[in-house]
Write a protein that binds this DNA or RNA. Sequence first.
DNA 1: GTCAAATGCTTGACTATCTAAAACAACCAT
DNA 2: ATGGTTGTTTTAGATAGTCAAGCATTTGAC
Lengths: 151, 151
Amino acid sequence: MATHKRPRIDPLTVEVVELIGTVVARYHEEYEEAAAEHALTGAQARLLSLLSLEPLPMRRLAQKLRCEPSNVTGIVDRLETRGLVERRPDPADRRVKLAAATAEGRRIAGGLRDSLDFAREPLAELSDQERLALRDLLRRMLGESAGTDGG
Amino acid sequence: MATHKRPRIDPLTVEVVELIGTVVARYHEEYEEAAAEHALTGAQARLLSLLSLEPLPMRRLAQKLRCEPSNVTGIVDRLETRGLVERRPDPADRRVKLAAATAEGRRIAGGLRDSLDFAREPLAELSDQERLALRDLLRRMLGESAGTDGG
DNA sequence: GTCAAATGCTTGACTATCTAAAACAACCAT
DNA sequence: ATGGTTGTTTTAGATAGTCAAGCATTTGAC
């Protein structure tokens, strides 16, 4: 009866996984809250943050957000309606539309960054040395693929 | 001009925050993928996982999932259509409907758990001692609120 | 006991996010 | 020129989420 394949995970690993789950949940919650403070949805906030660094073609946005390009169309539409993003032609390729944050869009993106207290508050508990240790452990955990986004 | 309030974050903290962001992104991705392997959406998978432990009133489900009860109605509807969940009367209170995983629902939830390789694979890189260190750091980072869910 | 307030769930209207398929324009190789 | 590929949008449809209103039941005041 119900011969499970893998009761093979030790309790410590289980606990770490649960803790990571908690981190993930809290991160998401705080991200959505911070976005909502600026009248943005999570998806809009992510897209706007990307554009606050540099203008990007719709296709690149879709890759970074890991979704279909047709989806990006709608999100950019809504941000454009509010004047936070604009579409520009790409001088090098007339098929391409570059989405770019407007001045107001960059302002909002900056405020969003400042709202992300998750960045500072929970880590404030840790000493420099502990932060270093945490960084190394997370790096190891993520392996060599950390930091790539499919570009 | 543009006197930003907090350029005060050291590079190490920034890096740790970025790593956590990567962990969050990967966790979500793998969760959605695992759910999709069982023809579930993320929300359906979360709800079904909760019910695989014990039947719950709709209201409690909404609390655990941090959403409105009216939203839970729809998710349970869709799972019920597929025979993974059923609604039972609560003998103690005829207003309440207990959502419960069916045998098939529990089977799927078990398969889902097994699919969550995030639990094992990335942590496999770490020794027991490192896992212990990571656990302690995450605990400290999350503070005393870790593990509560608003019940 | 009765009646009003509170509670649990669902419905309806609406928005956002997402996908897949089809359309269209522009690029590029031949 | 022609045909295939690429970048974007449109359309249609599903899910997920909110809020407000509605219905049934419970609870509590009296």
